[in-house]
Structures are given as structure tokens and as C-alpha cells.
Amino acid sequence: MIKKNNWKGWLYLAPIIILMSVFTFYPLISTFLIAFMKNYDYQVQTSEGFTFDNFGIVLHIIPIVSGNAEPAWVTDVIEYAIPNTLIITFVTVPLSIIIALAIAVGLNSIPKFQKIFQTIFFIPYVTNSIAVGMVFAVLFDYKGIINFLIGDMGSPWIDQGAPRWKAMIALCIYIIWSSLPFKILIFLSGLAGIDKQYYDAAKIDAAGRFKTLMHVTVPLLSPQILYVMITSFIGAFKEYDSVVGLIGKPGTDAGTNMYTVVYYIYDSIGRNQVDYASAAAVLLFIVILAFTGIQFWVSKKRVHY
């Protein structure tokens, strides 16, 4: 019976298998292959054999062999893309998780207006990120409301000439703000699943609010926290559209001081350096894989299903 109808199963699966093969598996394998090809030309799809040099060039360990002075982009990854990506990741992810948790717990304890606030907090999620970026760009404009509030009119945050650290602050605030709704939603649904009796028990055991939060809520919410942590770390490592949305170009100077790794990958393709882009993508993949692995390993003791 099972064997006879097998083709039917494959037929049902065919659309997704074909789409995934063309748009996911083929590019994925190609990326890995191209990352190891020497002087790959994507228009004619030729290369001069296999090499590890692409990784070296991306990381500015091996000098590029072009005779003349080195072009500016060779130091982009080491100087801007990697540090910026790491800052974005390790600032925005923990902060946004803590803020989202606080908001979710807060929302959960005021059942009266929960629905209204839930909607308000969810609005950023359904808003286009470029549109949100433009709003933040107006807020952080050198004549914008942020400067008005802190009484520092005219000094740029994200405009031409702004220092890198100021642009980074604006960028992180924007990323945190736009990543909150999804996290709040996940945490709220997790909180709804916690038996109220645990809180009654904690009350009788004379545990204070903060202690209840740390010893009851957080451990019982740990599966949701792990899920949010892993997805947001992966998302933060791939941050790109926020830079485009907020700043509109790779830097606040003439150069690329706001590069992220993915931004570098896109620009490399634009410079017809698909081999370097692939090498960078493979490096990013390895880092994300390792990082996710570490999180799973750490979570084994700390997550309670």
C-alpha cells in the first residue's frame, strides 16, 4: 500500500522541493563551491582552480595581487564589517530580550488594557522596516527632535560626518525598537501558558516580585527565551536592512564605517567579486553555526521544558 502510493506523496511535495532546490539548495551549494574558487567570474562562470585565498583576502591576511596600491575595500571586513556586526549583535540582542521580557511581564500583570497595549507594541512588526528607518532618520536628523531634546542642535547622528559611535547608538536603538514586538508576542504567549498556581505558591512562600520573576517566571519561560535568543542572534549577525533603512549608505563618512558583514557581501557582488562575497558568507555561516551550537549547549542546563 505504502509503496504503491509513493508517487502521490512526491507529487504533493514537488512544488516545495523544486522551489527549494532552485532557490535554496543550488545557491547554497554554489556559494560553498565559489568560496573556494580562484578568480571566479560569474558572468561566464569560469575559475582558475580551487584556493583558500578568498578567505584570506576577505580577512585582509593575504594581500590582493593587483600590483598597484591596495583598493580601499580590502580592510572593510576587518575594520568595519566584523566589529560593527559584533557590536550590533551583543548590544541589541541582550538588551532587546530584557526589554521585551520586562514589557511582556508588565503587560501580563495589567489584564485590563492588555489587548490595547499588545496591539500598540505589535505595530512596528507590521510596519515596513524601510519606512520605520525613515522615521528614525528624521528623529536622528541633525535638526531632528532627538537633538532638540538633548539640546545639541546641529551635531549629526547619522548624517554625513557623524562619528561612528553616534551612528552606532542610533542604529542599535532602531534595531532594538523594531525587534521588540515579535519578542513580546512570543513571551506573552509563553506567560499565558504558565500555571497561575506557581504564582500563588510563590506568594505563600513569601517570594518578592523580583525573586518570583527570576526564580519562577524566567525559568518557566526559558524555552521561549532560548527560541527568541537563537533566532535574534542569527538575525543580528545578518543585520543589513537596518543600516540601509536608517543611514541609506554604508557609512557616515565618504567610506564604509557602518558596514555589516552582509552589507559587505552585497557590495562585493556589486564589485563583481562573487568569490569574496561567497567566502564572507561561508565565514558568517560558520560563526552563526558555532554560536548557535554554543547556545544549545549552554541551554541544556538552563532551559526547562
Binding site: Q197, D200, A201, K203, I204, A206, V216, P219, H304
Partner: peptide, 28 residues
Amino acid sequence: PEKRGIGLVFQNYALYPHMTVYKNVAFP
């Protein structure tokens, strides 16, 4: 409740699932 000096055993026990028995008992 915490000032009344009572011990309450819930119908479904409400033991904290993430704590060992020792920690559950020690929590109060």
C-alpha cells in the same frame, strides 16, 4: 498570604518544575 504563616498544598501540587526537590523545599 506571606504574613499569615500558612503552608498550602495545592491540588496539583504546584511544585516548581525547574527546581530539584531540595530547592523546592528550601525555596520558602
